[in-house]
Design a protein around this nucleic acid. Sequence first.
DNA 1: ATCTCCCGCCATATG
DNA 2: CATATGGCGGGAGAT
Length: 827
Amino acid sequence: LKTPLKQAATSQLVLTERQPDCQPLSTPPKPQDTPPAEPWTPTSNLKMLISAASPEIRSREQRKQLSDTSAEVLQAKHCLQEHLLGDEYEKSQPSRKEKSLGLLCHKFLARYPDYPSAAQKSYICLDEVTEELHVERRRIYDIVNVLESLHMVSRLARNRYIWHGRHNLPQTLQALKRVGEENKYIQQIQMIKKREYEHEFEPDGEKKEEMASSLGSSEQSEMPFVELPGVEFRAASVNGRKYKSLRVMSQKFVMLFLVSTPQIVSLEVAAKILIGEDQLEDLDKSKFKTKIRRLYDIANVLSSLKLIKKVHVTEERGRKPAFKWTGPEVLPNIQDTKLEATSTTCSSPISESIPSKEHCSKNLFPSKGKQNFTRHSSLIKLVKSIENDRRKIQSAPTSPVKISTSTYQSLPVFPSTIAQLPAITKPQLEGQSKTAEEMQMKCALPSAEAVPKAEPSEQPAPSQPLGVSPASHSSVSPVILPHPHSGVSYAIYLHPSQAHTVTTYSPGFMLQPLPCANVTGVKSNSSKVINKTTTEEGDNQIATAEPTKPLAAEERPEMKSETSSQRCLKRSQALQENNLIKRHRSDEESLGTSLTFFPSGYLIPLTHCTHGNKADCSNKEKAGMCSLQHPTYSSPVTGVIPMPASELKTVNIPAFHITPLNIMLSPNSIAAAPVLSNSCLNSSNASSAPNPSSSALNFMLQHIGLIPAGVQVPANPVLQHVPASSQAENSSHSSGNTNLQEGKVRTNTAPWPWWVEGEGQCSDSFTAGKPSAPKEPQEPQAVTENFFRTPGGPNSGFSLSATSEGPERTSQGTLNIPQRKLEVSED
DNA sequence: ATCTCCCGCCATATG
DNA sequence: CATATGGCGGGAGAT
C-alpha cells in the first residue's frame, strides 16, 4: 500500500543514513530493494535526502559531496527536516511528482552545461547517471532518447553518450521545422481539427473517406529520424526500425509546434497525427492512450528543456491538455537557401546555418555498410535537385509519400522524404577547424577565470575511442576546461544579447540571426556581455544550482526584445544592414583579433578542405569559399537582398575568420569524424561533383536564383496577421490591442517550471523570491487560431509552394473556415 | 471522473 | 548468452 510508503519515506531516509552497511530500506519502497550493489554510504543517503528535499539543493550539494563529513550529513538532514516541517507535516517526499520524468530530467540536465565548449565534451555514462540520480535505467532512456531526438546528445556505444548541449538545437529545430513543413503537418492538423468540427455537426459524418484519403495522402508512413550533419547516429547498428518511437515521435511532436501557427499543440491532435502516420486511420482507442502516454513523457522532457510549456486549450468540447512552444523561434524556412544564421549564440552560429537540406538527411542506410555520412558540398546540390523532384512528385494530389514506405531501410536509392544525403560530418569540420590557435583564442577570450564552482566530479577524461577527430581535439583541448558552465560558454551566450540589440524584430527569438558581424571585438565585448547577462539574470533566473547557467542567456533576448520590440523592427533591419557592412570591414580588421563568428552553414564547403593538410589547405580554400558564402548568409539574416553573384566572388574574407568559425561549429560529435582523407571524393554521389569550390559556387548561385525576393523577408508574415499568436504571451505591448479577436488567452506567465511552482519547500534562498514574479501578468490576451487554413482545395497540390516557400505561401491560399474560439490557459 | 504518467514486464538489440 | 535498450500498457497518484 502506498500510503504507508509516503510517511515512511522520511523516516526511512533518516534511518538509512546511519546504517551505511545495512540493506537500505527494505521496507515499503520497492525502489530500495533493487539497488544491489550500491554501497549505502552516508553520502549516498545524503544525496537521496537532498534530492528529496529539493532539486536545487540536491544538485548543488551533489557535486560537493566528495568529502562530506558526518556534519554535513547531519546538516542536510536538518534541512530536510525543516523542509518537511515547514512545509507540510508529512505529505512530502516520495510523492509521485518527485519522481516525475520532468524533475528527473532536470536533474539530468543540471549535470551538463547547456553549451559545452568544445573542450569540455562530456560523456554520459548511463550507469553513473542512474546511480547518481537514483533512478531506474529505464527512465534515463526516456530522457536520453528525447535528447537524442534533438541532437543534444548522441550515443557512442553501450552505456555511453556524448553530451552536445544545446549547440545543435537551432539547427535541429530548423531541420525539424522543415521536415514538418514537407510533411504538410499543418494540413494534417487542420484536417484533424476540421474533422472534429464536422463531427460536432453531423452525427457521424461520412467524412471518413474524405479524411482517410486526404490524411492518408498527406501522411508519411515513414519518417526516419531526422539527422543533423554532424550528429548522425553512431553506428549503423542503431538503425533498426525500432528507431521509431520515442525518438522519432519526439521529433514529430516538435515539428508540430514548429509548423503550427499558434505554436500550440494539443495532445489529442498530436497523438492523432502521430498515430496516423504509423497506421492509417486506426481508431484504436488503446493505441491512442498509449500514444498519449508517450507524448506526456516526451512533453515532460521538452518541458524541462523549456522548449514547451503546458497549457490548456478550451474549446467547445472542454478544456484539453496542450502544450505551447516556448523554445526559440525558428526562422522561417526559406526554402533551400537556408543560409540565415539562426544562431542563438555565436557559439553555434556555424552549425545552425548549415543549409537546410543537409539537416534533413536521414539515416536510412541501414544495410549499406558503414557508409560514412560524409556530406559534400557538391552533394548538396545534387540533393537539392533530388529534393525538388521529390517534392514535385509528392505534391501530387494523391499520396505522395507512399513510395517511401519501402524506403524504410532499403535503398539509398530512394531519397525517401528528404534528401538523405550523406552529411558532411561535423566532426570533419571540427577536426580541421581545431587548430591550436583557435583553441587558444577561445580560451583566452572566455575569461579563463572561471567561477569557482563545483563541477561534475567525474568528467572522466574520456579516452577518445574514435579515431581521427578525437585525437585532434584532445591534442588541442588541453586548454580550457575551466568550468563547464563558466568561461567559454559565456562568450558564446553573450553574443546573442548583443544580437538582439540589432535583431530585435523578433521578440521571442532566442536565436536571433545573430549579428555575427558585429562581434568583432569579442574579447572586450565578452566581458561586458557577461556582466550584462548576469545582471539581467537576477530576475527570473531559475533557481538551478548554477546561477551562471546559460539558460539565462536564452531568456534574455526575450525580455529585452519585449521592451522595445516593436520599434526595433525597423531599426533593427537598418542596423542589420549596417552590420552587414560593418561586418565586412570588421572581418578584415578582426583578422588578428579573430573570433569573428560566421553564421552560416556556409562552412560546408570548408569541409572539402578537410582532406590533406588541414590548416593550409583549409585556409586557402576556405577563403575562397567564404567569399562566396559570405554574402549569401548575410542576406538572409539581414533580410537584405542577396548580393549579386559577382559580389560574392569578390568578397574576400580572410581565412582566419574561418577558423573561429570552425571551432564553434563543431562543438561536439567526436564520434563522427569519418574519413578525413577522402571526404571529398567520397562515395556515391560525388560523381556529379567536380570540385568543391565550383560546386559550391553553383550551389550558391542556384540559391540566389531561387530565392524569390519576398522570401528573404522573414519578418513572419504570420505574426503580422495574427499579432497575438505565439509571441503574444510575453509581450505586453501586444496584449492590449489584441482583444479584437475572439479567443482569449489567459496567460499566466510563470517562468518557473511548473513543478516548482507550488512547492513551498523548494524555496531555498533562491527560490524564495520567485513566486511573486510569475503572478503578475495575468492579462487576458486574445488569440485566434486559424484552424482550417487550407492551401488550396483538398486536392490542389500545394506541393511546390507550400513545401518550399514556407509560411507565406501557405497563408496565401488560405481558406479560413470558421474560426473557432479557443482559450488557452496556462496551468 | 479525468488527467498525468510512473513502474516495470518483457521483447529486441547489442556486444 | 548476458546486457543494454526501449516498447508498451496497467493502474495509481494528482486534480
